[in-house]
Simulated scan of single mutants.
Amino acid sequence: MHTSKHSKIHLTLLAIVSIVFIWSVIKPAAYLDWLAEVSPAVIILCIVITTYNKFRFTTFSYCIIALLSILTFIGGHYTYSEVPLFNWIKEEFDLHRNNYDRFGHFLKGLSAIVVREILLAFTPLTKGAWLSGITISIVLAIAALYEIIEWLSTKISKGGKTSKDFLGMQGDKWDAQWDMSLAFVGAVLTLVIFSKIHDKLLKNK
């Protein structure tokens, strides 16, 4: 019964993510930009789905994966610099930029829980400082890799509109550093706030 209940929640999350994905592919701002933005999330989702019967994450981790996927699909549909809600916030508070990408990179720090769970399941690491340090390092490495991919996209397309939309700097030369810093802060806060809760969920997995 316990497993069945969790499976229903997981299927519900998958259904919600699938609906948002289908919506995102309908008349996005630019199909090439959409493809570049959503591809990493689609790849991760495919891996999670195909390995579901072999390895189950906690429902908490699945919620995080679903949330981050939805954020990516929304960003891919509008481009990160043109998400309507954050355009409204920009105008309402007289900000210099649309901060959806900053918000998204901060929330990507939540992936620390997923990384932590993988490390506990497949490495000799145990709960403690080493686990937290390596988890944060992996989140930072992923954030840095993403920034490198964004940079390479501008070189391959020679600075075309699609690559500029994908890069989403909005005139800020420190955009990559901001993105990585926010992912770092998000990961640290995630581990501080949720590690004990995560440990309890792992016991009841």
Rank of each mutant, 00 (worst) to 15 (best):
W178Y: 15
L191Y: 06
H105R: 03
G109S: 08
G104I: 03
Y31M: 14
W174L: 13
K54L: 08
K203I: 10
S24W: 00
V83N: 07
L145Y: 12
P124L: 03
S39N: 08
A183I: 07
L140G: 05
H198W: 07
T59C: 05
D33F: 00
T123E: 10
G171V: 09
W130D: 11
I142S: 04
M180P: 00
N204Q: 14
E82N: 15
K161A: 04
R102L: 08
I134N: 06
A187E: 00
S181E: 03
L202G: 02
V17L: 12
T12P: 01
G75E: 03
I70E: 10
L125D: 09
H198V: 01
K196H: 12
Y31E: 12
T59H: 04
A141F: 15
G109F: 01
G159A: 08
A66R: 06
M169P: 02
I74Y: 06
G168P: 00
L189D: 01
K161D: 13
A121K: 09
K200T: 10
V17Q: 13
D33Q: 11
P40H: 08
T50A: 09
I149K: 15
G128C: 08
K200E: 15
A36D: 06
K173D: 09
D172G: 04
S7T: 13
K8D: 06
I22N: 03
I142V: 14
T190Y: 08
W151L: 11
M1Q: 10
C63K: 07
G160N: 15
